[in-house]
Simulated scan of single mutants.
Amino acid sequence: MKALILKKQTTWIVILLISLLPLPSIINYMHRFVVRNGVVTAFLYEVKAPIDGVVNSLSAEPGSILGDKPALILGNKRNMGRYTTLERELTSLEESLKQSQSSLAQYLDRIIRDLEQSINILEARLIGERATLKEVRQRRKRTLQLVEATVATGEDADRVEAEYQKGEALVRTTQLEIEQLKHRKRMLVQGMVPSDLSDGILHVQKQIDTLQLDILACKRRMSETETASSPQTPSALLQEGGINSGSSQATVVLPETSVIWEVDVQNGMEVTKGERLLSYIDRSQLMVIVAVDDATLELIEYDHPVRMRLFGRKDFMNGKVIRVMGSAGIWHSNHFAAEISGKSPRDGRVLVRIEDGQLYNEVEKFCGVGRTVYAEFEGIGLLEQYFGVFLR
C-alpha cells in the first residue's frame, strides 16, 4: 500500500515539474509585450521630370544603387532640332578642316622633300668647295715661299691670294645656304609656314585658320543651346522654377544611400514636365511599422526600446519608437514603401527606427522592405496591459 502511495506521489511530482518547465519563459514574456503584425518599411521618394524631354543614358534598375552615377539624363525636345542642325554643321566644318589639313600636309611634304634634296646637293657641293679651298691654301703657301726666295713674283702671289679669298667665300656662302634651308625645314616640320612660300600653300593655311574659327563659333552656339544643368539631387530638381523649362538637358542624380524601387521610363521615351520617372527608398532610414491596439498605445512612449526579428531569421535587431499614432490618426501610407496588411479598426500604428547592417547591405532584396516582423516591447507585461489602470 505504501509503495502504491509513493508511486503516485512520484508521478505527481514528475507531472508538476514538467508543468513548471515553461514557467521561466512565461514569466519572461509577462514582462514584455509581443506583436506579430509588423512590417519593414522606408520612406518612398518619387522623382518627376523637371523638363519636357527624351530619356537618355538610363542606368537605374529596381533593386540597385548608383552612387555618384546619374540615374538618367533628359534632353529637351524644344532645342533638339537646333542642336542637331548645329551638330551637322560642326561635322561638315570638321570634315572640311580635315581635307584642308590633308592638303596642307601634302604641300608641306613636297616642300620638305625639295628642301632635303637641295640640302643634299649643297652639302655635296660643299665637299668639293672645301677640297678646292684646301688645294688653293697649299698653293698659296708654296707661292709665298717662292716669292720670299725671289723665284715667283708679287703678281703670282696676288693671283693666288685672290683665288684663296674666292674659295673661302664660296665655302661660307654654301654653309649659309645650307643653314637657311635647314631652318626653313624645321619651321615646316613644326607647322609654321614661311610667308615667302607659294600662293597655294598660303591659301590652304588661310582656309584652315578660317575653318578653325568657324568651328569655335559653332561650338559656342552649341554650348549656348545646350545649357545643361549641373547634377542635382531630386529634391533640387523638383523645386518650382529650379530648372528652366527651356533647358536642353537635365541630369538626375540620387543620394548615395538610395535604392531604386521602381523605374517608370525607358531610353528614348518622351516625358512631360512633372511626369514620374522613378522612385527610390533611403536605406539609411529603415523602419518598422507595428500594429498595436489603441488600449496598449498608452503604455508606449517615444524612444521606447523594441526588439525585433524578421520571420525566418534567428537573430534580433534593436530599435526605438519614433512615432505613436492612434487608429483614427491620418496616416499617409503612400509616403512609405510598405504598409501593414490585415490591420483591425482599433489598431493604431507604432513606427520604430532600426539600424541593422545586414538589412542595409541586402540591396537586391530592397533591404528587407516589405518583410513581416515580430516585435517585443520591453517593460510592458501582462500586468501592465490588463491592470495598468489600477496600478497607475
Rank of each mutant, 00 (worst) to 15 (best):
L126T: 11
T174E: 01
K134E: 15
N120R: 11
T150S: 12
A149Y: 03
V136W: 05
T174M: 02
I119K: 02
Q165Y: 06
E161V: 01
L122V: 02
E179G: 07
E148N: 13
L170I: 15
A169K: 04
Q145C: 06
S118Q: 08
Q138A: 15
E129F: 10
G128L: 10
E163S: 11
G154L: 04
R142D: 14
L176V: 12
I127V: 15
L133C: 12
E177W: 00
R139K: 14
E148R: 08
E123F: 04
V151W: 02
E163I: 06
A162V: 03
Y164I: 04
E116F: 09
I119W: 01
Q145Y: 09
E129H: 12
I127Y: 08
R110K: 13
R159V: 01
V147N: 06
I121L: 11
Q145M: 07
A169R: 04
E161K: 08
E163N: 06
T143A: 04
K166I: 05
A169D: 09
D158F: 05
R110W: 09
V136R: 09
R113D: 13
N120S: 15
Q165I: 05
R140S: 12
T174C: 03
Q175K: 06
E163H: 03
A169Y: 09
K141C: 08
Q180H: 10
R113K: 11
S118F: 01
T150P: 02
A162K: 12
T173I: 00
A157T: 05
E135C: 05
I119M: 07
V151H: 00
D156A: 12
T143S: 02
I121F: 11
Q180N: 13
D156F: 05
A149V: 00
A131S: 10
D114E: 09
Q175S: 09
I112N: 05
I112T: 12
R139I: 14
E179C: 01
G154E: 12
R139P: 06
A131K: 03
N120C: 13
A152H: 01
D114M: 15
A131G: 12
E163F: 04
L170M: 10
A162M: 01
Q180V: 03
K166T: 15
I111E: 04
V147I: 06
Q145W: 06
I112H: 02
T173L: 06
L133V: 10
R113H: 13
E168S: 08
V160C: 03
L122Y: 09
R139W: 07
V160A: 11
K134N: 15
L115N: 14
G167T: 04
Y164N: 07
I121Y: 10
L144W: 08
E161P: 02
E155T: 07
E155V: 01
D156P: 00
D156V: 05
N120L: 13
A169N: 08
V147C: 01
L122C: 10
E148T: 04
V147L: 04
E135N: 13
E148S: 08
A149W: 02
I121H: 09
